[in-house]
Nucleic acid binder design. Structure first.
Ligand code: FES
Ligand code: FES
Lengths: 139, 139
DNA sequence: ACTAAATGATACTAATATGGTATCTTTTTA
DNA sequence: TAAAAAGATACCATATTAGTATCATTTAGT
């Protein structure tokens, strides 16, 4: 199975944000992250811009500029990052496509898949950036 | 999020097998399934051939031929079908790719994602074709 | 034996998603 | 006013998913 719960951009975002959380130098330019984390620069730039747009980072333009966390690491959750890069977590949408499926309300499969999805959401919601740093000082 | 737990071929397989389980006419030609389920014929043929290869169906060649379940519906599970069409269920493989990630053993994120994956597997393992038919006489 | 109706095998194509580049503009500080 | 940053966008490459097309083989019935 190739379908991933967490794609590359989300992954990179986690790593970048973790690094920033550990190294509290306030303003972090992309180039420094690139150097430390070996993530392709243009890709990481796109990612950081996205996180800025979504309010997780704040950006400072011009010389000496860069990015800083605008949310505390214990308030950034994996679901948030997944939503930013992968859209709302939805692993099934009526397994028998809507137009074909007449019994979406009674279908026991739908119910069970929904239950699985709920569990996943709850779990991902409970994983904060902060909780990832605890025993993990260096990524 | 576009990543699906269940892809189209698995989905079609579920529907075809359900239909066959309900209509116990022993030998079911693909054309009949196509007619009933509105699945693209060449695609469904590929799917049925796959299920045959994997031992879930038995095929009868030649005129009057078709497919029949070779396993009882209460012994066919969603995981089985997912494995046939999507390979082994694996939703994360070291979130920070193996070559970059030094701490796969201690990483709390890995542990938590693994736990989620285990839960999903257990749940999907518990969904049998039979259990999908119970209140669901017509797909 | 012949034909029609079925599957087996396999190669090809199209659409979409993912991962990543390239380029040019704007802002800021020294 | 030049260097160092981010902003904005358009583009490209690869992989996966979804589906088609074709031809060969097997079998039942006449
Ligand atoms: S048949 Fe549509 S949700 Fe199950
Ligand atoms: S850092 Fe590799 S599994 Fe978490």
């Amino acid at each position: 199975m190739k379908g991933k719960l967490i794609t590359r951009d989300t992954d990179y975002a986690v790593r970048a944000l973790c690094f920033m959380a550990i190294n509290e130098e306030e303003i972090m330019p992309v180039d420094k992250l690139v150097e430390e984390l070996k993530i392709p620069r243009p890709f990481l730039r796109k990612i950081m811009q996205m996180l800025n747009k979504k309010g997780i980072l704040h950006s400072y333009k011009g010389k000496g500029g860069g990015f800083a966390l605008s949310v505390s690491p214990d308030r950034i959750f994996l679901t948030d990052l997944i939503e930013v890069f992968q859209g709302p977590l939805k692993l099934n949408e009526c397994i028998f496509k809507k137009n074909i499926c007449p019994n979406i309300n009674t279908c026991p499969l739908k119910k069970r898949i929904d239950k699985i999805e709920d569990y996943i959401k709850t779990q991902l919601q409970s994983i904060s950036l902060h909780s990832l740093l605890e025993k993990n000082s260096k990524i």
